[in-house]
Design a protein around this nucleic acid. Structure first.
Lengths: 219, 219
DNA sequence: GTGTCCATGTTGCCGGTGCCCACATCGGCG
DNA sequence: CGCCGATGTGGGCACCGGCAACATGGACAC
């Protein structure tokens, strides 16, 4: 078991969806199956959440027989974990992109604005990619990783910036990350699968603004 | 379809687990199958979350053939919705119980203490009954019901009390419920399936205290 | 060049599930 | 007393996750 140690940053061979014309010699060995399967599984997760990640169907779509997947993943959960990592990475990237978009000449309380932007993007990602977002957290494994990485790392960094900028007393820093994360995550979950589904986009955005404001005030 | 209109507040006949001794005449008609199936399904959800709610197994445990369930539920989702309602009801009840436990002679800011108690119990329930809690929110249907009912209703009432008691400016009331709910729900979810699983109970409680304090401060 | 080995992919199979069908049973009604 | 509709039964289908045995062919030693 534990076959999943191929180089994750694999060469981006476009082996997926090779045109299988009559003359095209179909290779017996796929060459990049693991990565291709993960791509397909991510698509499944995007479309329907964790439950939609189905090994047999993924293999079928990838043009390979079922059971081929078991050469690269111990079981379905192993594949799900990979999808979860992808989801986390994409969420983190979007948050970082959003930060990069912020104008540098922000007057007033720039670090606080960064915190708001990060929180808003967290929710926006969850609403834009509900399936992937849910799958990212559906994985039971605690997502081991260097602290300071992942979405939590981004949030943490921004809070540290607030302390440096004098916008947050240092003695209030411990625990602040968790409060921000919980509020934003809870809002996203309640919007997705909870009782806030019916909110119009405008209402949602207004409520989100209110939430971010209150959270920042309470830090 | 839509057979699910039996009186939900059904008589509590103890038809489950009847001793089927050799002399006990086993009735062809169960008499209370719907309620018994829901009970079993709730047990399944308690044990393993929404995925553990399995129609065939529930029927088996209830001592009835599969397919019998389809006389009472349109499909699995229909049964899940019922489990969800049960979970919501139990959560609400625990919150109300907790409120009732509070001493009436609370000095200082009694309504704020009630808010903290409600929030704490929300998280405690989620941690004590992770499967049922998850299933309660896993149901896609927006949980139609009179506003002011359910866990949200309890929270809402307490916030109204805070306004009446002068502990919360009326202009800050709108949106406060959502912020509280999101923070507490997010904390619970992150503890259950997220990256906060590894926290010891003491750390968790400390973080929860901090969160409740910050949220209250930001209201 | 050639022969071997083993990672990779294939077919076959099993138990389990959700859901549909036709049939069996029984209680209440005329 | 006889019928009928509500309730429960058995069988069947498609699909899934996971094991086992077999097939393929690329890489590497010689």
């Amino acid at each position: 078991m534990g076959t999943g140690n191929m180089d994750t940053t694999a060469r981006k061979v476009d082996t997926v969806n090779m045109v299988e014309g009559p003359g095209a010699a179909r290779r017996y060995h796929h060459g990049n199956l693991r990565a291709a399967l993960i791509d397909t599984a991510v698509d499944q997760a995007r479309a329907g959440g964790a439950d939609a990640v189905v090994l047999r169907d993924a293999a079928r779509r990838t043009g390979v027989s079922h059971n081929a997947a078991y050469r690269h993943f111990a079981d379905r959960d192993d594949l799900l974990a990979e999808v979860s990592s992808r989801g986390m990475a994409e969420l983190e990237q979007r948050m970082r992109d959003r930060l990069a978009d912020l104008p540098a000449d922000d007057h007033g309380r720039p670090a606080a604005a960064r915190l708001r932007a990060v929180g808003r993007e967290y929710v926006h990602f969850a609403l834009a990619e509900p399936g992937l977002f849910a799958t990212a957290f559906a994985c039971g494994r605690p997502e081991e990783g260097a602290p300071g990485q992942g979405p939590y790392g981004v949030l943490s960094t921004v809070l540290d910036e607030m302390v440096s900028a004098g916008e947050l007393p240092a003695e209030r820093r411990p625990g602040a990350d968790l409060t921000c994360w919980a509020a934003v995550h809870g809002f996203a979950v309640l919007c997705l699968q909870g009782p806030l589904q019916e909110l119009s986009e405008q209402e949602r955005e207004a409520q989100l603004d209110g939430l971010l404001e209150r959270v920042a005030r309470g830090l």
